[in-house]
């Protein structure tokens, strides 16, 4: 996974050679992370064989399974986004970073990465149950994740522009609220996917 992100960032680095404006820099980062999230989370349910599924079925409640999956996915995405951010700044940092509120940006990246993970976990479960690979996951996940991605991008652009916490916190709280909502929905709906 990490290799995938690093290669993507390196390709961008070779491709652009310096001069990226702030909005483009921001958008590029989130596009890379979005695709990384799709790749990472498609595996979380797909890599499972029938035997292990039966084992889990007899062992744990569906609520426990989805919460564990969600937590695992969120942690993976947080680590992944932090490492890719580090890599991205090293290779493509430049003048964009100079005026940014870096702590705020890192918080946005963590909350945003966890949010992507939360939304895509349930989508991944659905597409795995449908028996269709990453193609279906992209079709189902893209429209659901898009509005969230737009608000994350706006929050992170605010952080890059060096806005104060108070003026940018609306977006941040908003993303966080959607995270909570998504987890609640997954918790309620997953048992119906788990039965049979």
């Amino acid at each position: 996974m990490l290799l995938y992100v690093i290669s993507a960032i390196y390709v961008c680095y070779l491709g652009v050679r310096g001069g990226l404006s702030l909005p483009v820099w921001n958008a590029l980062f989130w596009i890379i992370l979005l695709f990384a999230a799709f790749n990472a989370l498609a595996r979380s349910f797909q890599r499972e064989d029938a035997d292990r599924q039966h084992y889990l079925h007899s062992l744990a409640s569906p609520q426990a399974v989805i919460l564990a999956r969600g937590a695992y996915a969120a942690m993976t995405m947080m680590v992944l986004s932090l490492l890719s951010l580090l890599c991205y700044i090293l290779l493509l940092g430049g003048p964009v970073i100079a005026g940014a509120d870096l702590v705020q940006f890192i918080v946005v990246v963590m909350v945003g990465g966890a949010g992507l993970a939360a939304v895509l976990t349930l989508i991944s479960a659905i597409s795995a149950r449908a028996g269709n690979g990453i193609g279906l996951m992209a079709v189902l996940g893209f429209p659901v994740v898009l509005p969230m991605l737009l608000s994350i991008m706006r929050a992170s652009k605010g952080a890059l522009d060096g806005l104060s916490w108070s003026s940018n916190s609306t977006y941040l709280l908003w993303v966080f609220a959607v995270d909570v909502l998504t987890v609640t929905l997954s918790y309620l709906l997953f048992p119906y996917l788990w039965r049979d």
């Binding site: 659905i126 149950r129 449908a130 189902l140 509005p147 969230m148 959607v178 929905l185 709906l189 996917l193």
Partner: peptide, 20 residues
Amino acid sequence: KRADLAAVYNIFAFVLMLVF
């Protein structure tokens, strides 16, 4: 199975969309 999956996706997507 189709009905299960479709119903879950429908509810999940609708609530998120409504909020946005």
